[in-house]
Computed example of a mutant assay.
Amino acid sequence: MLVRNGSFIVAVDGSRMSIFRNIGEAFKPSLELVEEHQNPRFKSSELGDDRAGRNAQSSSPRKGAYEQTDLHQQEEDRFSREAAERMELLMKDSTNGLILVAAPRALGMIRQYIGPATSKQLSAEIAKDFGPHDAEPLTKMLEKYEA
């Protein structure tokens, strides 16, 4: 994959975001870590203690329950929105390209919150849950990736 010199590579999953810059050649990238953000892991009791709601209709003896809200997923979605906001700030004054590597759900959330100017600077979107946010495995993956 072509990764221009000076391009930013952002790797995001539900709880971590790492921003790298290519300081190498286009087809032989060398990534340096610019910044890293981590979403703290909360226990369910810290996120909320609400139980699912109940529904009882007076005209029927049947009772029902509402689906339990996934508080951890809501927290991951919030982190994805913050990642999109950080990307907006990063690309505001930049003329370099941007490559986004994100877990599929995080990628969908980020797409909703980035503006048109940042979208135009996106060279590639890679829907991959990239667990280790180290430069070396990410570099190898980018070298092998075909857009």
Rank of each mutant, 00 (worst) to 15 (best):
44 S>D: 12
118 T>E: 02
134 D>G: 06
73 Q>T: 07
29 P>H: 08
43 K>Y: 13
36 E>N: 11
7 S>H: 03
139 T>E: 09
24 G>F: 05
45 S>L: 09
64 G>P: 01
86 R>Q: 08
119 S>N: 13
87 M>I: 10
55 N>F: 15
140 K>I: 09
124 A>N: 06
75 E>F: 01
112 Q>I: 03
35 E>W: 02
42 F>D: 04
59 S>Y: 07
88 E>P: 11
46 E>L: 00
47 L>P: 00
11 A>F: 00
122 L>H: 00
18 S>F: 03
91 M>G: 03
102 A>M: 03
114 I>Q: 06
123 S>M: 08
99 I>L: 08
87 M>H: 02
146 E>M: 03
100 L>R: 08
36 E>Y: 09
70 D>C: 09
108 G>R: 08
40 P>H: 07
123 S>E: 14
13 D>H: 01
62 R>P: 05
130 F>V: 08
112 Q>P: 05
116 P>W: 13
120 K>Y: 08
96 N>D: 15
64 G>A: 14
109 M>V: 11
47 L>R: 08
33 L>A: 10
138 L>N: 04
33 L>F: 09
63 K>N: 12
141 M>G: 07
36 E>T: 12
87 M>P: 06
146 E>T: 14
46 E>T: 10
111 R>H: 10
69 T>P: 09
60 S>W: 03
88 E>A: 03
112 Q>Y: 10
26 A>V: 10
39 N>W: 01
94 S>T: 07
114 I>A: 07
54 R>K: 15
43 K>T: 13
25 E>A: 15
38 Q>M: 13
143 E>R: 12
92 K>G: 02
117 A>W: 07
90 L>N: 14
131 G>N: 12
65 A>Y: 01
146 E>S: 13
125 E>V: 05
64 G>L: 05
118 T>L: 03
146 E>G: 06
67 E>K: 13
71 L>P: 01
54 R>A: 12
97 G>H: 00
47 L>Q: 03
11 A>V: 15
135 A>W: 02
59 S>P: 02
51 R>D: 09
29 P>R: 11
39 N>T: 12
68 Q>N: 13
32 E>L: 06
122 L>Y: 02
91 M>F: 01
144 K>C: 10
109 M>N: 11
90 L>C: 01
100 L>Q: 00
70 D>P: 10
63 K>S: 11
19 I>H: 02
56 A>N: 08
127 A>H: 04
143 E>K: 15
80 S>R: 09
143 E>D: 05
25 E>K: 12
65 A>I: 13
29 P>K: 02
42 F>E: 14
114 I>H: 02
47 L>T: 12
72 H>E: 15
62 R>L: 10
141 M>Y: 12
115 G>T: 14
118 T>H: 01
109 M>Y: 01
13 D>F: 02
127 A>V: 09
45 S>E: 15
37 H>R: 13
39 N>D: 03
67 E>D: 12
32 E>R: 07
12 V>W: 00
78 R>S: 14
41 R>M: 12
60 S>Q: 11
64 G>R: 02
69 T>N: 14
65 A>N: 12
123 S>D: 14
24 G>Y: 10
133 H>M: 06
43 K>N: 09
28 K>P: 06
15 S>Y: 04
25 E>D: 13
3 V>I: 10
77 D>K: 08
81 R>T: 09
69 T>C: 04
96 N>H: 13
111 R>I: 00
141 M>W: 00
102 A>V: 07
5 N>E: 14
2 L>Q: 14
33 L>S: 09
80 S>I: 05
40 P>W: 13
64 G>Q: 05
14 G>S: 07
